[in-house]
Simulated assay, not measured.
Amino acid sequence: MKSQRILIIEDDEFTRRLLAAFLEKSGFVVTEGGDGKDLHARTRDTAFDLIVLDLNLPDEDGLVLTRQLRARSRVPILMLTSRDDETNRLVGFELGADDYVTKPCNPNELLARVRAILNRSSKPDDKDPAAPIAFRGHTLDLQRHRLTDPQGEEVQLTAGEFHLLSALAMANGRVLSRAQLIDAVGSPEDALTERSVDVLISRLRRKVEANPQEPDLIITVPRYGYRLAVS
């Protein structure tokens, strides 16, 4: 059986190495990072089964990173928080985190929660995160970066259009704010704006809507964002 891959992002080197060694001893393949830049670099080219994310990092806010991850990926997220971070824990859950462990961290508790999350995410009736997503006759292949229309013809998308559509499709009908879509489309170095998102939405509609002037697939939610009509 293939070992599951875990990414630990924790700025305290002693804590990070302790948890990494414990998880490796338990059979996981562990990658380490100490800040938000490491998170972006590690997740750019590697698919992880779970990310352990400290909310208090030196360069980027862990809650912002949680929102960015959830906008572009279904990867399970286990938050590392301080004991007085109750508000942050609640916000983290609202942003899509799966569970949390308080620091100082008990490695046995971390292992139990990691296993519980992975068990939930790997149930046979759960959707494969990499499986193609079907909506209104279209099929979005996340691995091949390919969209086909109801006639089976490939729809040519730019990278930005693909990432935006992927975020909407993975949200499974939930509304995503423009801020969440900015996270899904751009890297931290990109100077994207809400107007950029609106422009991409307009371009996407011309490619996937039967009538772009009266869209019924990519729905505008006034004063908030957009959602994909998945059924």
Rank of each mutant, 00 (worst) to 15 (best):
F22C: 00
L23F: 10
N172T: 08
A41C: 02
F93N: 04
R178P: 01
V91Y: 06
L78V: 08
S26K: 12
K2L: 09
E10D: 11
T43Q: 01
S121G: 07
A112L: 02
V221I: 15
N106C: 12
V175M: 06
L50A: 11
S82R: 13
D11K: 00
F22I: 03
T193F: 11
F28L: 05
V230R: 02
M170R: 11
Q151A: 06
P150G: 08
R174T: 02
I51C: 04
T87A: 14
E189Q: 10
E24L: 03
V64C: 00
E86K: 06
D99V: 13
A159V: 15
E94N: 07
V155C: 09
F162S: 01
D49Q: 05
R113W: 12
L111S: 04
T81D: 02
R136Y: 03
A41K: 04
L90Y: 03
S196L: 01
F48Q: 03
I201T: 15
F22N: 09
P132Y: 12
R223Y: 13
R195D: 10
E86V: 02
V52L: 12
N108R: 11
V29P: 00
L200A: 03
L69I: 15
K207R: 13
L90N: 14
E60C: 00
N119I: 08
E194Q: 13
R72D: 01
R72G: 08
F162N: 03
A112P: 03
P215S: 06
L7V: 11
L165D: 02
P107H: 12
S122W: 05
D45P: 01
F14N: 14
M79F: 04
L90M: 15
Q213K: 12
R67E: 11
F22Y: 11
G27K: 05
D198N: 05
M1H: 02
N119E: 15
R17T: 13
L65Q: 01
P58S: 06
P107N: 13
